[in-house]
Nucleic acid binder design. Structure first.
Lengths: 124, 124
DNA sequence: CAGAATCCTACCCGATACTG
DNA sequence: CAGTATCGGGTAGGATTCTG
């Protein structure tokens, strides 16, 4: 026996929080960029490649991802400083899982009623 | 050939939005309750069973889930009114997918650094 | 270059009435 | 019973400015 099959309340809650954080507005885009780069990326490179994110929010997102163990942050103490970000193994694996779900949703998109949001049938 | 393997930008965005909405604070709990009931549930029953949700937010959540095609809302025009909610097939399938991801995260929880959030090593 | 600090806005959510 | 309406606090996120 390796793991317990019934999650405890606490495990459930923690996993829930991870899921909510990672599916928030920006983290997946950041992780995707890092995955596609397939190499460490500097802060400014990430900022360029994640369409529409602001510097502040990127910083926050990177910090959260680092805290969760999904990316690494490496500081090279030079002037000017160089900082590189890279997906961890866990981060890469999680991304694969989420992308799989993502693709499943894409495949069923026609079945979703109003993924973009709908106005109800009020004319005027 | 049944589906296109490369999602368009638009599909990607829509699926992203679905994923973000469904993993938001309450929808999964609501869907879980409906799934476990395995039968139509009245509004007040759902309100009772979803721990901690307010009536206003439950209404909003149900509306969003309905718009997305994940649940059905059936109104019986009586006095007092009776309204029943039930998972759609799509909703049930999506829930299965997400629960699977959820369980995967639970299994890897030890690898996550600080799922609950961490204070950095500042003593005072 | 890689951020920290600040200001500001928009939403989200919770609590509390009120109604068909 | 199943909502709607309203108010208020907290927070995520954007734009801008400053700094080691």
């Amino acid at each position: 026996m390796v793991t317990i099959q019934t999650p405890t309340e606490a495990e459930d809650r923690l996993a829930r929080e991870v899921l909510e954080r990672v599916t928030a507005k920006w983290p997946l885009s950041v992780m995707r960029v890092l995955a596609e780069a397939n190499a460490p990326l500097r802060f400014s490179r990430v900022l360029e490649r994640v369409q529409g994110i602001s510097q502040k929010v990127l910083t926050q997102t990177l910090r959260t991802l680092e805290r969760d163990g999904l990316i690494t942050r490496t500081l090279y103490p030079q002037v000017p400083p160089r900082v590189e970000y890279e997906l961890t193994t866990l981060g890469g694996e999680l991304l694969v899982q989420v992308l799989s779900l993502w693709r499943w949703i894409v495949g069923r998109l026609p079945d979703f009623a109003a993924p973009g949001g709908i106005e109800h049938g009020v004319v005027a």
